[in-house]
Simulated assay, not measured.
Amino acid sequence: MSSARGSGRLVTGLAWAVLLLGLWLWGRDATGGTGSTSAPTTGDIAAVGRPLGVPLPPAHDPLKGAEPRRVEIPALGIAAPVVPRGLDGDGAVDPPPYAQAGTVGWFGGGSRPGEAGTALLVGHVDTRSKPAVFYGLSAARPGQHVEVTGADGTVAEFTIDDVQVFPRTHFDAAKAYGPRRRGRAELRLITCGGTYDRTTKAYTANVVVSAYLTDARDAAPSKPSDP
């Protein structure tokens, strides 16, 4: 029995190692489109980080978690449906197709938002002709809220506590995607950042927004339509 558990942990560890490498590769082509639009210039800086003096609430106990259906960041005007995604042939998270550039992808092979662990949400920054769902993600700041509505009707509210911009030349997958505190329910929202290099056809950085669960409630019932 202990041997089986050990093998399971090994397989899980290997799967995450492949995933983290894939996430780095994913930003090369999949999230950035062609860079034809004026994408947010976040700069190749190590971190926006947490400004001094920003009070953050205590963490909420992890929930059972549910498959996400919608994500909203009111301060950024982001509101989008969420669909489960897996890995592509290269081991990278397979984002929604460009025809659905207003949709966010959730890595269904990982944690569900609200449960203990790190849930991953990925989205395009632009397409060939226009901004995409996470175009404004680089403007996120600690203290802002992220609301994820699950398939069970629960709204998990996360508070952003860190915003990192990782240049490709100094990318640390474990630091970017690993848990910040063991036992918490955490969330990562990921897209491309920096500037678009037309020679390599890739963005120069990844924007990684980190948040943790601070509240949960039932979704508000929809209002009946007028007769």
Rank of each mutant, 00 (worst) to 15 (best):
T169S: 13
T159Y: 00
V48A: 12
I45Y: 03
E157D: 14
T214G: 09
T195D: 05
V165H: 08
V155K: 04
S129V: 08
G102V: 08
V48E: 10
G53D: 03
D61N: 05
D90H: 12
L19H: 09
S225L: 14
L63P: 00
L19M: 06
L14A: 14
T12E: 15
T41L: 14
T103N: 04
T195R: 12
P97L: 03
A151D: 10
P68F: 07
G8T: 10
Y196F: 14
V122M: 10
Y196V: 00
G114V: 07
V207W: 07
G108M: 05
T118W: 13
D126S: 15
G109E: 09
L25P: 00
R180H: 14
A140F: 08
A151T: 09
P142F: 06
T12C: 07
G102A: 06
P68C: 05
D152L: 03
G8Q: 15
D161V: 05
T149H: 05
G35Q: 00
A4L: 13
A30I: 03
W26G: 13
T200H: 00
T199Q: 03
P62L: 01
V93F: 11
A176L: 03
P58K: 11
E67I: 00
R188K: 08
E115D: 13
P81G: 11
W106S: 01
S38E: 15
W26H: 15
D161A: 10
L10E: 03
G123D: 10
A59H: 06
R69H: 02
F134G: 02
L120S: 11
P97V: 02
D29K: 09
R184F: 02
P221I: 10
S36Y: 07
G35F: 00
A39I: 08
G153K: 08
R181G: 02
A173I: 04
G114P: 04
D226K: 14
V104L: 04
A47V: 09
S2M: 12
G105H: 01
D226L: 14
E72G: 05
R168D: 11
G153D: 01
W106V: 08
D61E: 06
S111G: 05
D152W: 06
V208G: 09
G49E: 05
G22L: 12
A75G: 09
V155M: 11
H145A: 11
S111A: 15
P68N: 05
G143H: 01
G194F: 00
L20C: 04
G178H: 00
A101K: 03
V163Y: 11
T204Y: 03
R112V: 00
T154N: 02
P142S: 02
F171W: 10
H170I: 08
A17T: 07
V146Y: 04
P57K: 04
I160S: 01
L189Y: 09
P179A: 09
S36R: 09
S225A: 15
T12H: 13
Q164T: 15
D29T: 06
L52D: 14
T191Y: 01
